[in-house]
Amino acid sequence: MTISATLRRALLFLLITPIVTLLACTSSEGTQKKSTPPSTGKGVPRMTTYPIGRFAIDVPAEMKLVHQWQRLRYAEIEEFAWSGSVPRERARDEAWKKRLTEIGKLTPPKGKERVIIETRDFPGVGAWARGILFYGNRMSPKDGNWLILMDVGQTAAWLELKGLVQYEQDMLHDLTEIAKSYQARRFGDLKLPPGNWFYTEHGVINLPYLEQETAAARFEGHPLGLEIDIETTEIHKEEAENHGLIGRTTAVIVTGYATGIDIKRIRSRTRVVTGLKGDEEVDRMDDGTRSVLSFAWRFAGRKDSGEHPKILITMECADGHLEEKLQIWDAVLNSLKPMYGTGR
Rank of each mutant, 00 (worst) to 15 (best):
E324R: 12
Y199A: 14
R99K: 15
E62D: 15
A157G: 02
F187Y: 07
Y74N: 15
S83K: 11
R185F: 00
K97A: 10
S181N: 04
N196V: 00
E168I: 07
G288A: 08
P194E: 13
D189F: 01
F219Q: 06
K277L: 11
E220L: 08
W69P: 01
E102P: 03
E241K: 14
K237L: 01
D262Y: 07
L172G: 06
Y167F: 11
H243L: 10
I246P: 05
I148Y: 14
A81F: 04
R130K: 15
C317G: 01
T6W: 04
I3L: 13
K42Y: 09
S305H: 09
R99N: 06
R298L: 06
G225Q: 07
W197Q: 00
G244V: 10
I52A: 09
A331K: 03
R298Q: 05
A157T: 03
R284C: 11
D174N: 05
Y167S: 13
E323A: 12
K34L: 14
T274H: 13
W329I: 02
L336T: 04
K42R: 15
L65F: 08
A91L: 04
G144K: 07
E234S: 14
E102F: 06
K180P: 11
I266L: 15
A184K: 07
P309F: 01
K162Q: 11
A251W: 10
K64C: 14
G288V: 01
E168H: 14
R265F: 07
K34Q: 05
I313Y: 11
P141S: 12
S83W: 02
E280R: 07
S35E: 11
I77R: 00
E118K: 09
L190K: 14
K33A: 12
G131Y: 00
R90G: 00
L12W: 05
K105M: 09
E79V: 05
P141Q: 12
P309C: 06
G188M: 02
W158C: 04
I148N: 09
G30S: 15
L336C: 08
L207Q: 15
E113P: 03
I328H: 08
C25D: 13
H222Q: 10
F134G: 00
T314I: 02
V204M: 12
P45Q: 10
V273C: 09
Y199M: 11
I52V: 15
P87W: 02
